[in-house]
């Protein structure tokens, strides 16, 4: 399997897996979505809540706040937690934002300080402790590290020469087969032409045909911000390896038991 990084920024990653299978690519996709641990509010202890919103409502909103995650100093163990505190009596009508939360670890804080949590009217009180824990996306969506996880087989466009859009005439990635049909095998090298052909395809233009290459699978995602994209991919891969290791160990164990 080869990996071609198409884009890797602070928030986004796009890459192409080549010489692969859907099973392999999908294993990675699923691992990213459900196995990479990030931090989120897991438990909220309310001391006072005289707002118009019930505890469950506020707790659910807290859980949805993405929180900067430190995978080195924290683990999934029982006591490895951070607490976010709020103790507020509203002097006037206003909104409590994620930035108002006080963290027990100054590095583990909400990624965005302007996420509204709850509206308070004058004189209302709210005091709680939110316990932040590491968790996995397979347990609850709040622990998912990514959004918009893209995944696609590579399209191979076949287009009749006369239908080729003007802008694509000089494209380097064009090939011609023996029947004289133009082929784009690697749409990622020229995204503009690919988009143009895709548009023709969606309009029902029969002069463009599409085929799918399941050995080259494109993936891309946007990190929710808790951990950077490359860390997400690496952790996902680690988690996969751990699973195979575990499988290997279990298998060996079973085989040895069988012998005995």
């Amino acid at each position: 399997m080869k990996i071609r990084i198409l884009r890797l920024t602070e928030g986004k990653a796009e890459f192409l897996l080549e010489e692969t299978t859907p099973a392999m690519a999908n294993a990675l996709r699923r691992a990213i979505l459900s196995e990479v641990p990030v931090m989120a509010v897991h438990e909220v202890i309310f001391f006072t809540n005289t707002t118009d919103y019930p505890d469950e409502y506020i707790a659910h909103r807290l859980a949805m706040i993405p929180i900067r995650t430190d995978l080195k100093n924290y683990s999934m163990d029982e006591g490895s937690v951070v607490t976010l505190r709020l103790d507020k009596e509203a002097q006037e009508e206003g909104v409590v934002y994620s930035g108002d939360l006080e963290s027990s670890d100054p590095l583990i804080i909400p990624l965005n300080s302007r996420i509204p949590i709850v509206t308070m009217k004058r004189g209302q009180k709210l005091k709680f402790e939110a316990i932040v824990k590491l968790g996995k996306g397979k347990w609850h969506a709040k622990w998912q590290p990514v959004s918009g996880l893209r995944y696609s087989y590579t399209p191979i466009y076949e287009v009749l020469p006369e239908a080729l859009p003007e802008s694509c005439k000089d494209c380097e990635s064009l090939e011609k087969n023996k029947n004289g049909i133009l082929i784009i095998r690697d749409p990622y090298s020229c995204p503009k032409c690919a988009a143009e052909l895709e548009r023709m395809l969606n309009s029902g233009d029969s002069r463009v045909q599409i085929k799918w290459d399941a050995t080259r699978i494109f993936m891309g995602f946007e990190s929710n911000g808790q951990i950077p994209p490359f860390r997400i991919i690496l952790t996902a891969a680690d988690e996969l390896i751990k699973k195979f290791d575990e499988f290997e160990n279990k298998l060996k164990e079973a085989l040895s038991l069988n012998k005995g």
């Binding site: 859907p22 099973a23 690519a25 999908n26 294993a27 996709r29 699923r30 995944y151 696609s152 087989y153 988009a195 895709e198 548009r199 969606n202 309009s203 029902g204 799918w212 399941a214 699978i217």
Partner: peptide, 22 residues
């Protein structure tokens, strides 16, 4: 929809989340 580059009938290619196959 067509002008925005989408399939005009609202159809899209989807993948099975368990196998990764189209």
């Amino acid at each position: 929809l067509r002008r925005l580059g989408f399939e005009y009938g609202g159809l899209e290619i989807m993948y099975d989340g368990r196998t990764g196959e189209m």
